[in-house]
């Protein structure tokens, strides 16, 4: 934020109002992470449990068909948006088929 030009009082909305809904998505929180969840699309059963629990939200449903090596077909996939994932690991813990790997971030 310090790199941005700070607006003066005339330019700012009155009373601290924020007029652009959801604009926090321009602020990435991915750098909070030390470990990251990596979804193994082949093991993933698309139960969406991770998508439900992710508190950011940083897990999204992508409308991309996927066929596993064993031939199982899914109409969609689940992916982590690493711009936002803070690396809490709740998705890893909640994943019943153990399809989310917990990988240390490279520094």
């Amino acid at each position: 934020m310090t790199q941005e030009k700070l607006l003066g009082w005339k330019e700012l909305p009155l009373g601290g109002a924020i007029l652009e809904p959801g604009n926090s998505e321009t602020r990435y929180t991915g750098d909070w992470r030390t470990f990251k969840p990596v979804i193994e699309q082949d093991k993933c059963t698309r139960c969406l449990r991770c998508w439900i629990v992710c508190p950011e939200p940083a897990i999204y449903i992508i409308d991309q068909p996927y066929t596993t090596k064993s031939g199982r077909q899914f109409k969609f996939s689940v992916e982590v948006n690493y711009n936002y994932c803070k690396g809490c690991g709740m998705c890893v813990e909640e994943c019943e088929p153990k399809a989310i790997d917990w990988v240390e971030e490279e520094k």
Binding site: M1, L6, L12, G15, G16, A17, I18, L19, P21
Partner: peptide
């Protein structure tokens, strides 16, 4: 819109 945000010393 969001009313009553938190303003740090910059704002």
């Amino acid at each position: 819109i969001t009313m009553g945000s938190i303003a740090n010393p910059d704002w």
